[in-house]
Design a protein around this nucleic acid. Structure first.
Lengths: 177, 177
DNA sequence: CCCCCCATGTAACATGTTACATGATTGA
DNA sequence: TCAATCATGTAACATGTTACATGGGGGG
C-alpha cells in the first residue's frame, strides 16, 4: 500500500468514482502532489481491486465506478488512525496532509483531534532536533548557505506546527457549538 | 541526471570524497531528505563515473576518492544556473534547497542572488495560484479539512518566500562589506 | 581472537514517469 | 463528419528501497 493507494481509497470512500474521476481530482485540486498520470492511477486501482479493498460496480448505461468493500473500509480506518512520527513530518508532509483532508469523512472527531495534536507534537520534536543540530559542533563549520538551508527547514516546520494549532482551534469552533 | 546525482556531484565538487563519506553527509546532516542507503548512492556514483562527470582517484595507501572532471564541473554549473519555476517550488523544495546550499561554493554571488529572487518570485506565483483557487467555485464546496490542507500549503509557501527575503538580506550583509 | 564498524556492492522488488495505443462521445 | 475530449489502458524505462553479501581493520 503506497500513499497514492490510500489517497485513492479515501476518495472512493467519499463517494464511488471512476478512474477518470479520480485522476481529475489530482489534476484540478492542489491537495498533495500526486501525479494524475494514467500510468500511476490505473495500476494502483487494479492493485486495490486485486487486494479486495474496492470493487468495480457497473452502472447500467453509465460507466462503472469503484466502490469500497468492508475490507477497504477497515484498511482505510486503520490508516487514518496511524500515529504521526517525527519522520513523517520531515519526509512525508504531503501524505500527512492527504490523510488530514480525508479524515474529514470520519464521524469521530477524536481521530482528527488526535491527528492534529500528534502532528504538532511531531513538528516540535523535529524543531527540537534541528535546534540541537544547530548547537552542535558541525554547525559552526558549515558554510553559511547550508546553515540557511537548515534554517529553512526549521521555519517551515514551525509554520506547520502553528498551522496545526490554528486548524484545531478552527475545527473545535466548527464542531463545538 | 536525478536530484541525487546532482547532490553527489555538488558534494564531490566541494572536496574529493569516497562513497562512504558521501553517505555520511546524508546520514548526519538534515540537508534535504536524500536516502543514504548504499542501494541508491553507489549506483548513482557509478552512473556519474560512466558519464565522465567524476573519476575515482586512488589515494596511495588510503582509499580512493571521487574527484570532479571538467565535464562534471560544467554540468554542475549548468544545474546551478537553472531557472526556478513555480512547479519546482510546489513539488521539489528539497532539490531546490540542496541547490541553494551547493551554490555556496560558486564564486559568483550573482548566481545566488538570482536564485533567491527567482525562488521568492516562484513562491509568490504559487501563492497567487492558491489564492485564485481559494476564490474559485470549487472552494466553497470543499470540506473544511480539505480547505485547511490547502491553507497549509499556502502558509508553507509564504514562509518559504519570507525565508528567501531574509536569506538574501543576510547574504548581502555577509558579502557586502 | 573475535566482534563490530568501515566500506562497497548486488538482487529482488515496488513505484512512478513518459509516451504511446485504443475506442467512445460529443459538439461544431 | 471531423476534431476534441472522455476514458482506459500498456510498455519501456528510471529510480529508489530493503535486504543481503562480502571483505578489511581496529579495539577489547
Amino acid at each position: 500500500m503506497t500513499p497514492l493507494s490510500y489517497a485513492l481509497l479515501g476518495l472512493v470512500h467519499q463517494e464511488p468514482r471512476s478512474g477518470y474521476a479520480l485522476r481529475k481530482v489530482f489534476e484540478t485540486t492542489p491537495l498533495g502532489n500526486y501525479s494524475s498520470s494514467p500510468g500511476s492511477i490505473y495500476p494502483a486501482l487494479k492493485n486495490l481491486e486485486k487486494s479486495g479493498l474496492i470493487v468495480s460496480r457497473p452502472q447500467g448505461t453509465r460507466k462503472a465506478v469503484f466502490v469500497m468493500t468492508p475490507a477497504g473500509r477497515q484498511a482505510f480506518e486503520t490508516w487514518l488512525a496511524q500515529p504521526v512520527t517525527r519522520d513523517d513530518v520531515a519526509r512525508s508532509m504531503d501524505a500527512l496532509m492527504m490523510r488530514f483532508a480525508l479524515l474529514h469523512d470520519h464521524p469521530d472527531h477524536g481521530l482528527t483531534r488526535c491527528f492534529l495534536t500528534a502532528f504538532a507534537a511531531a513538528c516540535r520534536e523535529e524543531m527540537a532536533g534541528l535546534d540541537a543540530f544547530m548547537s552542535g559542533e558541525m554547525w559552526a563549520q558549515m558554510p553559511l548557505q547550508s546553515r540557511l538551508a537548515v534554517q529553512f527547514g526549521r521555519a517551515t516546520t514551525e509554520t506547520a506546527a502553528d498551522w496545526a494549532d490554528g486548524a484545531l482551534r478552527q475545527l473545535e469552533t466548527e464542531w463545538g457549538g
